[in-house]
Design a protein around this nucleic acid. Sequence first.
DNA 1: TGTACATCAGTGAACGCGCGTTCACTGATGTAC
DNA 2: TGTACATCAGTGAACGCGCGTTCACTGATGTAC
Lengths: 209, 209
Amino acid sequence: MQSGTDQRSYHHGNLRTALLDAGLELARTGGPAAVLLRTASRQAGVSHNAAYRHFANQEDFVAAVAEQCMTQLGLLMIERIDGVTASDPAVRARMKLGALGRAYVEFALAEPGWFRTAFSAVRPHSSAVGAGSDRVSPYVLLGARLDELVAVGELAPERRPGAEYAAWSGVHGLSSLLLDGPLRELPEPEIDKALQIVFNILDRGLLRA
Amino acid sequence: MQSGTDQRSYHHGNLRTALLDAGLELARTGGPAAVLLRTASRQAGVSHNAAYRHFANQEDFVAAVAEQCMTQLGLLMIERIDGVTASDPAVRARMKLGALGRAYVEFALAEPGWFRTAFSAVRPHSSAVGAGSDRVSPYVLLGARLDELVAVGELAPERRPGAEYAAWSGVHGLSSLLLDGPLRELPEPEIDKALQIVFNILDRGLLRA
DNA sequence: TGTACATCAGTGAACGCGCGTTCACTGATGTAC
DNA sequence: TGTACATCAGTGAACGCGCGTTCACTGATGTAC
């Protein structure tokens, strides 16, 4: 987002970032299908082929934008986790996991374009983690919560391996179904109920009574 | 799929079905983005605008194809459920739920194009159920399993309302993550492990001990 | 400090592509009488 | 049973669209000496 009077020099100076910003905005509004090189270039105020100096091709560009979307999710998670201030370590650890899960579903519902884009791109050679920096990788953030739950004695150590699979599947599945599945257009109170039920089953199935 | 010598009359006679068949094949190979009116018409051996006699526009067509994809999922579920032959009612009910869940994930992995298409189309005025006939609607099939579990005493009646949310979210989330998420390219044995864990948590969280 | 030169980051024009959709049409079919 | 006519289900040509990508290029920048 530049001011109106961007009488810049011939060289943009920060085109890659500007293109990613534009791509992020396109993804937000129209999902992965809207992340186009020509449109992003136009939005960055640059000729439509300048993008090829910074990205190999469209696929490469979309993948980079998708990574940014994943980072957005991670940032919201961190924000929500940091908002948990319970003093008891066990309670705090459980609440943080809940906050993470709620952030996940909230993100999907509030930013469907970003959510769909984050999980749309084929990134063959990227790490399984899915975000540039581990610090904001949703997967890493979830792992840290589960580790903490083991540390404070709320999650049995023998249940720790693979616990991500169940937790992720629960929140990701609910998000997807609410967005693009049979639970689309579920009324708000029913959404809350669904969230409660999913969390409750995960609690009962995963954690100590 | 017609034989080579389709010297048909001017009127195709079954064009709608032929287009849907073609669309289903396109979805199978290339996902929702590959479901195109022109390509489907070509494959049905008909001029590219004949499709407008049977579908309002492309969106309408894709929606119809998506419904077919959903039906494919339902059919596989039924097949797997029918394969369960345990004699004890309680055991049978649990096994049927497991078979349904496994069918779901198996479908996603075996037919990613269909799976993605089934959950891609925006069908504003379709029922929340998501398949033409209730008999093959995945959602209805799941509900029937849960009802049965209540009937045989394996699922507490007070846990029945909303139990679909948890069960669906679990299998759907796992499927999505394996297909387009951070669990993509998980090695086969690890996939099985993930499946076991998700089912185990659902069992422990939902059913009676 | 100045200058020659390599390199970098953009521009502008052009290509090919395949799509969705609309138009006026024509051949085939069914039906009223 | 035959015929006129309405209706239905296709055809063929055309339009506009916007994209990805490539090409030869030019202006800006940085660096060796």
